[in-house]
Design a protein around this nucleic acid. Structure first.
Lengths: 253, 253
DNA sequence: ACAGCTGTTCTACTCAATGGAACAAACTAT
DNA sequence: ATAGTTTGTTCCATTGAGTAGAACAGCTGT
């Protein structure tokens, strides 16, 4: 055992590394993966054979690729997620009402995970899909969530993930983040002003359960060109917050 | 090795069995899974610890459950699927245009896999989600695909999966299936008249690449009460087929 | 035809997964 | 309270299984 991590199955970990590599590099050959993962060719072959027999990967000639069986797991996890069930329609409505990009996010393992993403008619085409993870501090959705997590939880998360810069607008200073989170709590919504992607503005509102815990957040993203200051500070926040409120009502029965 | 299946990693297979069990039974404890899988308690514990360290499962007190990391894999697989990319908008349009349930399906490992599923305003609420697998012969989508697969492929699929009955309307006779598939090829679309679920009718149209291979199928499902004979034989087939045609155009550049 | 790639198979070795027993912690019931 | 049951977890010896390396076969291009 390389580290003092007890009771772990090293072999399964290798299989997971193979899956991760396939996700990172797309369709790959045995030798490529062996080089990439610094594993023996025959070892990689054994793991891929196993994954193929279990239908987690498909082979196309000499290359292996992730199969739709993984979508089965993912779709299932999404489908039965309590927040997704109550928020799905509202995300949809938000996207068609604004014509822009509407997203739903929850926190897991200290990261933001998109639960749903829907494009309206004229929405920007970001590479966002359900299950994608993003750092919480760099996006409106994430700050809406962070603002309503217990302070010690926020400490833990920042200890683990830090405050990496995504653009030159990203908040990288803890004090500044805390100030912003206070503002978010104050006015009830969070913004992201080109902090993740240049030229993109987001407005996110937290979804809060009746016991005060934050369930997630919902947002609208659009180009700066279509979100002038008035829309950015008044209209869009209103729309997003009312969507969040509707979801809260559904969530609290 | 229990069977003469060479070059397989038995340990990773066990991990996969744990994942499958979690999907089947939902949130579960160590001892429950150990009983269910006929594995030793400590073995299950080791596998779950590994999966937790790799963030494939989350624990809530004493119970373990599938995590959103699986949604990451699933969402990725869906997002970069070539048919999904070109068909996504059309599924969306079909759902809002008809107000009913629109689905997109592809074939993998001889089964039908939903790639997308979108509910219109008044759509029935079936438990369909991306990644869900269904037998091809029992649904309109599946028959649209089967009708355009190479005959030997169809033989293989039926050899492997048979023709299990889902309702008393399901086709279970090979000759009858072949006849229906000929009809599907003839008129360009397939129907499902309460063959999967009582009271539900579907119309599915194949999506065919320029080289003649079938890429998948798209459908509309609605209650019999809202799909009388005229709609069932004329209107809906027209709408679905034209959606399929649009997708074909996008797919062929 | 040859050289340099592949992916795959085979086998010996040894490392690591396993299962059983022992443990502590959390509940239940008496 | 206390004893009894059930939980998750830990430890450890055993042996079964994963691994690495070499050898093989199939392919591609020169």
């Amino acid at each position: 055992m390389t580290e003092n991590a007890p009771h772990r199955v090293e072999t399964s970990r290798k299989t997971i590394r193979v899956l991760d590599a396939l996700r990172e590099h797309g369709s790959s050959s045995v030798t490529f993966l062996a080089r990439e993962l610094d594993m023996n060719k025959s070892t990689v072959h054994n793991h891929l054979s196993t994954l193929e027999a279990e239908k987690f990967v498909v082979r196309d000639g000499t290359d292996y690729d992730l199969s739709l069986r993984l979508l089965g797991f993912g779709g299932y996890v999404q489908h039965r997620h309590p927040l997704y069930q109550v928020a799905k329609r509202e995300v949809h409505r938000l996207a068609s009402q604004t014509g822009e990009l509407a997203n739903l996010m929850v926190e897991e393992y200290g990261q933001g995970v998109y639960l749903a993403s829907e494009q309206g008619e004229r929405a920007v085409d970001l590479d966002i899909y359900p299950g994608l993870r993003r750092p919480l501090h760099a996006i409106g959705l994430g700050k809406a969530i962070l603002a309503h997590l217990p302070p010690e939880r926020v400490d833990d998360i920042i200890d683990e993930h830090g405050l990496p810069a995504e653009t030159d607008q990203t908040i990288t200073d803890r004090a500044e983040l805390d100030a912003q989170l206070a503002t978010v709590r104050d006015r009830g919504y969070a913004v992201d002003n080109e902090e993740l992607i240049r030229g993109l503005r987001c407005v996110g509102a937290p979804i809060i359960a009746k016991d005060g815990t934050v369930l997630g957040a919902i947002s609208v993203s659009q180009p700066v060109s279509r979100m002038n200051n008035e829309r950015f500070t008044d209209e869009v926040p209103d729309i997003v917050q009312s969507a969040a409120n509707v979801i809260e009502l559904h969530a609290n029965h």
